[in-house]
Amino acid sequence: MKRHLVSAADLSRDDAVLILDTAEELARLADRPVKKLPTLRGRTVVNLFFEDSTRTRISFEAAAKRLSADVINFSAKGSSVSKGESLKDTALTLQAMGADAVVIRHHASGAPHRLARSEWLSGSVVNAGDGTHEHPTQALLDAFTLRRRLVGTGLRGAGADLAGRRVTVVGDILHSRVARSGVRLLHTLGAEVTLVAPPTLIPVGVGSWPCAVSYDLDAVLPKSDAVMMLRVQRERMNAAFFPTEREYSRRYGLNGDRMARMPEHAVVMHPGPMNRGMEITAEVADSPRCTAVEQVTNGVSIRMAVLYLLLGGASPDSASTVPAATTAPALPEENQ
């Protein structure tokens, strides 16, 4: 593992499998009455959110707290950032306060990359979503969910990747950081990814991505082990990406009829928040094949695993060294 998690491209297959295995181990904690480990006691994790995202922030917050880290939530709104403070000065401030890890959500693509490669911070940087670039922990939790559903949980899934699984990602690929991280990570794990969207929502230059592209959802559904529906913002139609919500949902939305064309074992995923009636109907969203809620639970386990692996191996005074963790943690038998 590298010191930072900025892009899904930072992860080798073995890194990714280690994170999934670690998350599987840590997930067992959720079944215990006291959901807490002492691993990161005395370490400080800052959630630096330049963009509103309650879901992602509380997921990281829960993950850090279950590992006993001290958590500081820094929201750009109402802070010095809204008064014009630069990313650099914000980072220097956090550094001066002794942040061991900075979890950053930023509206600018590449902001976490800049933080990680600057001299501004010595701690680990975790990308919690940057612009239309990447959202690597979302890709990891999606991979985790897929492995549980398609390969098996616990020991059955441990050590496995997603070789040969066919994953279809549907929606606003152009503006989606979930798609960019997802394609990279799923490919690393051996899955075959197909992107489906109207051509306006596929980026120019997609040809170099390790995946297939289709404009025809109905043709791809029967050959999918999982269908991941992305949120499509209604405002996109104002920029002529598609004519109307109705037309979008007719051509690219997932409804009961379409779901019936998927193989029986296939699952429906959604990173949330869902636009019911737009990219997904209530019938599909509420069906047992839809993993949306499960993904939220898995998100906490994955983010625990990432923080554990990035921070767990190093002592507080040498946070800049690369953690030596190469194996999944064994949970202590007694709760703390």
């Binding site: 693509s109 670039h133 950081r177």
Partner: peptide
């Protein structure tokens, strides 16, 4: 933000 092509597609920067 940058030339529209394979690199912008990967970096998620406006083309």
């Amino acid at each position: 933000q940058m030339n529209e092509g394979t690199v912008s597609a990967e970096l998620g920067l406006g083309g």
